[in-house]
Design a binder for these strands. Structure first.
Lengths: 194, 194
DNA sequence: ACAAACTTTCAGAAGATTCTGAAAGCCTCA
DNA sequence: TGAGGCTTTCAGAATCTTCTGAAAGTTTGT
């Protein structure tokens, strides 16, 4: 029947359009995840299509060069956000996105902590050490500010550690618990005494 | 006494060097905070020196142009990370960094949620709505993936809301509680039964 | 060993972001 | 009203990031 065939085509193109919109929306979050726009888009594409895709399909869909696709996909594999999939009977390499969004968060946290948080903590400790012996009131206050910042970054670092150590399920659980906890503290603050 | 004068100078320059190192370290985190390098550096400078500084002092210390300093400081004020300070008897404008690191985190979260999370949620909901009527198994699965992502981003959004609503003190408290909670879940997972 | 099929690399090009500096704008005080 | 002191603006310059495409590299099958 012609009508069904037409419908199928319409359905297909509607889905493709939705995928494109998702890819675009996700691409705008690239900065927030700390990856390039194209990395975010390629990840979004693989996530939303749900099935493994090869380099050519990604190139075509995202309108990017082969070189760019290659480097982008490799970077995503390095980040642990997608994985290589081999299909028997096909020499091409396929890539599939992690399907669990919480596992995805874990991978993101792990990489960013490694790249950003750890080096910062090292630098702050170095500064603190080399500043420790300077005498005088201004130096004291400088150290106080440095220590406040160290405490802050340290706290964030510990949270990141804990979250990274969790499985996807635990992470989801902890997140929901955190929402509840925050509600509790909020009620506490608004409600009554110490 | 000459010796004391010498010492004072040495102390002064050691402190300046430490400040510079701090500024540099903080500048490298710019990407993580979602601000430009110069914004991060200017903020770091104002934070670590502890006292209000005027545009000329920031320009000189950071070796940037007047125009850049002006725009950077204004942006920091917009983000709520620093505030304008007027000194009586001085026509220059001074800027002082928020002193409480937790309040700083709150300001950061508020801005980034507004700029990044909210638009993403709107876009995802739109896609979901426009995709709702598409029939067929592939569309079903597409919606399932979209919903998983919506649930995830929604959870993050709720946490951000709660954190933004908290005062600096509550935020610190909640963070420490979270570390404890994570420890608890961790022990739970490793330890025993459901 | 060779060829076909596919992937990776990287120098230079393109594009995006950030910065400069000079001119315009805005107060304040005389 | 106007001169001085300070701040803001913004077009073009400089810089940094990302992308392209062709050549080199790799793997698989015969």
């Amino acid at each position: 029947m012609r009508r069904i065939s037409n419908d199928s085509e319409a359905v297909r193109s509607a889905l493709l359009a939705a995928e494109d919109r998702f890819v675009q929306a996700w691409g705008q979050m690239a900065g927030a995840w700390g990856v390039s726009r194209t990395m975010a888009e390629a990840h979004a594409l693989l996530y939303i299509v749900g099935e493994p895709r090869n380099t050519d399909e990604v190139m075509e869909r995202l309108r990017i060069s082969r070189g760019n696709a290659s480097m982008t996909l490799r970077a995503l594999v390095d980040w642990g956000l997608i994985s290589r999939v081999h299909k028997r009977g096909d020499r091409k390499e396929y890539f599939a996105a992690e399907r669990d969004v919480w596992a995805m968060l874990g991978a993101l946290l792990r990489e960013r902590k490694k790249r950003e948080l750890n080096p910062l903590l090292v630098a702050l400790h170095e500064i603190r050490d080399e500043t420790g012996a300077i005498p005088g009131e201004p130096a004291e206050q400088h150290r106080a500010r440095l220590d406040a910042m160290l405490g802050f970054i340290g706290a964030i670092d510990r949270i990141a550690d804990r979250m990274i150590a969790m499985s996807a399920g635990e992470l989801r659980e902890a997140t929901h618990a955190l929402t509840a906890l925050a509600d509790g503290l909020d009620a506490h603050a608004k409600g009554g005494a110490s």
